[in-house]
């Protein structure tokens, strides 16, 4: 029998990478300057690569012969396990960078802990992904600081982005009952430790960026249990288009 808890966990890691990688891919050719167009594509490529490894592993745990493509392209909307934050539309560059930063600040400590996972595959994927994520966090932090402390317009835009996206941040740390068994087995870390590190990174970068953490802390969640926002459907319509319109073909 498959390890349901592990399957779910790896799937949500994979889906987080997949959905954010897909979103960033939308920028390709439309970036604010060529250099940054290239930078965002690099991050997208890293995330797609992570999604491939993670979803392959999820398929292996599942044991039904599904590879990363079967999982990425042939599930229904409620079967995706990514957090709501990542499926939010790109919006402007400030919104994209804020979404990226809030996620990178979470992903880095998570991967750091996952490197020590008792599950060797998770550990290996985390080790490779951590290197990529450190750079993502560096890059997104640089931009948050520049936008926050740049011009009045950029400050307002990035503050608005923060005000809007803040409601999706608690979900990053949500743990299901199933997850607890993995924590106990030393396969995944407890989220409380990750949250402390995340909060510290966020606090220091936002402070340097002269940005204010919203006072309204009303939070949304649902993605981790497959209850998504309206945006995911459109994202999947694009993502799955070829596989749905031309089923059972090799590309």
């Amino acid at each position: 029998m498959k390890n349901e808890a592990l399957y779910n966990y790896v799937l949500h890691l994979g889906d987080d990478s997949l959905i954010l990688g897909q979103r960033l891919g939308e920028w390709c050719g439309h970036g604010p300057i060529l250099e940054e167009d290239i930078a965002m594509t690099n991050i997208s490529l890293d995330l797609i690569g992570q999604a491939m490894s993670l979803l392959d592993y999820a398929g292996e745990i599942d044991g039904q012969g599904k590879d990363h493509d079967a999982l990425a392209f042939l599930r229904f909307e409620h079967e995706y396990r990514n957090v709501l934050l990542l499926e939010q539309p790109n919006g402007d560059f400030a919104n994209t960078m804020m979404r990226q930063f809030l996620f990178d600040a979470f992903r880095k400590p998570l991967y750091e802990q996952l490197v020590a996972s008792k599950d060797v595959q998770i550990s290996a994927i985390a080790e490779k992904s951590l290197k990529e994520t450190k750079y993502h966090l560096k890059h997104s932090s640089e931009w948050i600081i520049r936008l926050g402390d740049g011009t009045e317009e950029s400050h307002n835009r990035v503050q608005n982005a923060l005000d809007h996206l803040w409601r999706y941040t608690d979900e990053l740390f949500s743990e299901s009952d199933l997850d607890q068994s993995l924590v106990d087995a030393g396969i995944v870390p407890s989220m409380s430790e990750i949250k402390i590190q995340w909060a510290e990174t966020v606090r220091s970068v936002l402070e340097e960026a002269t940005l204010m953490i919203p006072t309204n802390n009303w939070q949304f969640e649902g993605g981790r249990r497959g209850v998504h926002s309206e945006h995911l459907g459109f994202l999947l319509a694009d993502l799955q288009y070829m596989q749905r319109a031309y089923p059972n073909m090799t590309w």
Binding site: E26, D238, L239, M242, Q243, W251
Partner: peptide, 8 residues
């Protein structure tokens, strides 16, 4: 890019 048929 958003509609490529597989991840590779």
């Amino acid at each position: 890019i958003t509609r490529a048929p597989n991840l590779r």
